[in-house]
């Protein structure tokens, strides 16, 4: 009997958690009228901010992919002194409050610091610029990519790499023909997680670049200036765009071999 009441408690609590996640989202999605949604999506300011969010988020994810992959591989494949420290550093962007991230980065690239002035000398403007937004997004997105890619690499049996090497493949070729293809799914997941995290960033971006406005900043501004009703449609469109992006990435990443090898033993 006690076992059963425990089961009921678990079910009830799970149900509550799911409701807590879904109800606000459903309420928001269903709140704006179709007319409001239509009007919002042809608003050039909204389109600009959606597009900005999208391409800065994707750029940040690609930067994480290019520069983070070697680190993820190292973390998965080698043991070295201080590895724990490196892993803790990599996780820092998750635990630091978002405005703190923005302030830290502004302190680096702003004009009050020699590095920021140097960048300015070379014509590289980060503050109030899409480049700055990408920088912030990369910072907050990195841990999500690294974690997933690391797990992907760790799940590839080292023996497969050893066999490839013994058959004549260099470390480079082994990585590109064995390790990477086998970790591909996890890497794609990492890119999607990183991209999602990047697009959702508000607190850090707003400090580096209030303008040009990414979609979350635009939502915030409309909420401040006009109220809830005017920010909801933008939010709905941001959700739609993100869902489309992630679903299509998943479809592209499915690859052909799953269906080909799915036969019986």
């Amino acid at each position: 009997m006690r076992k059963e009441s425990f089961l009921w408690l678990a079910l009830a609590s799970s149900f509550l958690v799911l409701l807590f996640i879904l109800v606000p989202l459903l309420r928001m999605v269903s709140a704006p009228s179709l007319a409001a949604l239509r009007a919002t999506i042809i608003d050039p300011e909204v389109l600009r901010s959606l597009w900005l969010s999208l391409y800065t988020g994707i750029s940040a994810a690609l930067i994480c992919f290019v520069f983070g992959t070697p680190l993820a591989w190292l973390l998965a494949r080698s043991e070295f002194r201080g590895k724990r420290v490196v892993e803790a550093i990599v996780d820092l962007p998750i635990v630091i409050p978002h405005p703190v991230v923005g302030i830290a980065l502004l302190g680096l690239v702003g004009k009050n610091f020699w590095f920021g002035r140097l960048l300015h000398e070379f014509g590289l403007r980060l503050v109030g610029n899409p480049l700055g937004i990408i920088m912030v997004m990369t910072f907050v997105g990195l841990p999500f990519y690294l974690q997933s890619a690391k797990e992907g690499f760790a799940s590839v049996p080292p023996r497969l790499e050893h066999v490839a090497r013994s058959l004549g493949a260099s470390m480079f070729t082994t990585f590109f023909t064995v390790t990477f293809p086998l970790a591909r799914r996890a890497i794609l997941s990492g890119i999607i997680m990183c991209c999602a995290r990047a697009i959702s960033e508000f607190g850090a971006v707003v400090i580096i670049a209030y303008h040009p406005m990414i979609a979350p900043v635009l939502m915030f501004e409309r909420f401040q200036s006009y109220g809830l009703k005017y920010s909801q449609p933008v939010a709905v469109w941001l959700i739609v765009v993100c869902l489309l992006l992630f679903v299509s990435l998943r479809l592209v990443g499915r690859g052909p071999e799953r269906t080909r090898s799915g036969g019986a033993r």
Binding site: P157, R159, L160, H162, V163, A164, R165, S166, L167, G168, A169, S170, M171, V178, P181, L182, E257, S261
Partner: peptide, 20 residues
């Protein structure tokens, strides 16, 4: 000499075939 330059092949108990 790295493994790829030795001319020594290995077959493991668990086959270690490339699944992809």
């Amino acid at each position: 000499l790295p493994p790829e330059k030795r001319g020594i092949s290995i077959v493991y108990q668990d086959y270690a075939l490339f699944p992809h």
